[in-house]
Nucleic acid binder design. Structure first.
Lengths: 217, 217
DNA sequence: GCTTGATTACACCGACCTGTGTAATCTAGA
DNA sequence: TCTAGATTACACAGGTCGGTGTAATCAAGC
């Protein structure tokens, strides 16, 4: 499956359906699976647990999903949320990503990146999971790249990669340390990288510069 | 358990014992558990599998470890390898970290950070696992900070945090993408951050600067 | 009323899991 | 040779897991 198709499918799912209507059983199952899978882990949660949490029979769950694997795939696809368009300046949008990250870190139900976690849990053998995880990571990288291109940055592609490293790095660090400050650290690093690429991100361009001394070697 | 104690225990374990001697059963179990846990996942591997892989009975395994949890803890503690001292310049040491990372990414048995994976797999409820994961992450951060202090960098602490973000970010990205270039991207970003802090990392200090035109390095 | 489809309860399967109990066997050292 | 500890095979307990089969129930639309 491709990134574009995933996003399109999701947008259809989210936007076309009347919002309050269709409290579909399938959606209820997915929402519950999402909560439990994400918070407790995919392997840690059995289908019985999900059914019990909703108050339905296991048979009903299996009427909507042919297998747990299918439920896992649907869970990840549902997590593949498209970034909503913004009218802010590209540089602000990029930096706002890290503010949003910090807010999510502070929430006590944050448990890292569901895609990375799924790959870590299910292993590289699970091609389907890996595929959607790659698609998600790449979609975010391309989002950064598009913003950088809007800014006229020359090496937008390489810089976009570096920015996603900061995003995923802060997520991994927060996962083990529970420290939302990781997002701020990532933001500061991002500012340096952007400034170095000629982007005006406000503040003094040489603010953090010049550690005391260093010996030329 | 503390980071310092862990490192000390490990150094004892590794250095004091004659290398070829002591093909201890305990060590054989640990080595096999390490391979299987790391490559396939902790939850995916049962104690029977480990025993069968070595060719011993499950009873023997339980004679050396009181429970699977204890084996998991020992596995992670064994992974807590101390960085060996280097005579290279601090800046080189820092950058060499990313070269080493790239080499490990290229190996086909690389499966991300065992500590992050364990936390992702076992969940935040497992306090013991989380504790050692935090200790490991912090020890690496402190290693960076020490090198930066040797360089006389002013905000060594903040910069060290940013560097570990790049390390963990590249690990997470490589885990899902299988792309060793993530390590190079992290290294380039690290160079920019170091340069911005006044560290001489070789190459033109303003080469990548200023948006528009420049040749790829 | 009747039909159709969704949902229900519930038993059950085979597989795998961690962990234990036991009694026999092997091996190294005094 | 005797002893003590490690290791063995093997059965088994008690549990969870994913998944299925079946027959009853419920609700909506014709």
């Amino acid at each position: 499956m491709q990134a574009g198709a995933d996003v399109k499918a999701l947008v259809t799912q989210v936007c076309v359906m009347p919002p309050a209507e269709k409290s579909d059983m399938k959606e209820r199952i997915l929402a519950t699976a999402d909560k439990l899978f994400y918070l407790q882990g995919i392997r840690a949660i059995g289908v019985d647990t999900i059914a019990a949490e909703i108050g339905i029979s296991k048979r009903t769950l299996y009427n909507h999903f042919p297998s747990k694997d299918a439920l896992i795939a649907a869970y990840l696809e549902r997590r593949f949320v498209a970034q909503r368009p913004s009218d802010k300046q590209p540089a602000e949008q990029i930096l706002a990503t890290f503010d949003s990250l910090e807010r999510r870190f502070a929430a006590k139900d944050f448990r890292g990146c569901p895609f990375v976690n799924a790959v870590a849990e299910l292993g590289p053998q699970d091609r389907a999971v890996k595929k959607i995880a790659v698609a998600f990571k790449e979609s975010r990288r391309l989002w950064f790249r598009d913003r950088l291109n809007e800014l006229g940055v020359a090496n937008a592609d390489a810089l976009a990669t570096q920015l996603v490293l900061l995003v995923d790095g802060s997520i991994a660090q927060d996962l083990v340390r529970d420290d939302p400050a990781m997002a701020r650290a990532a933001k500061e690093a991002a500012k340096v990288l952007l400034r170095n690429a000629g982007v005006d991100v406000g503040g003094d361009a040489t603010k953090a510069a010049k550690g005391r001394k260093q010996t030329p070697q």
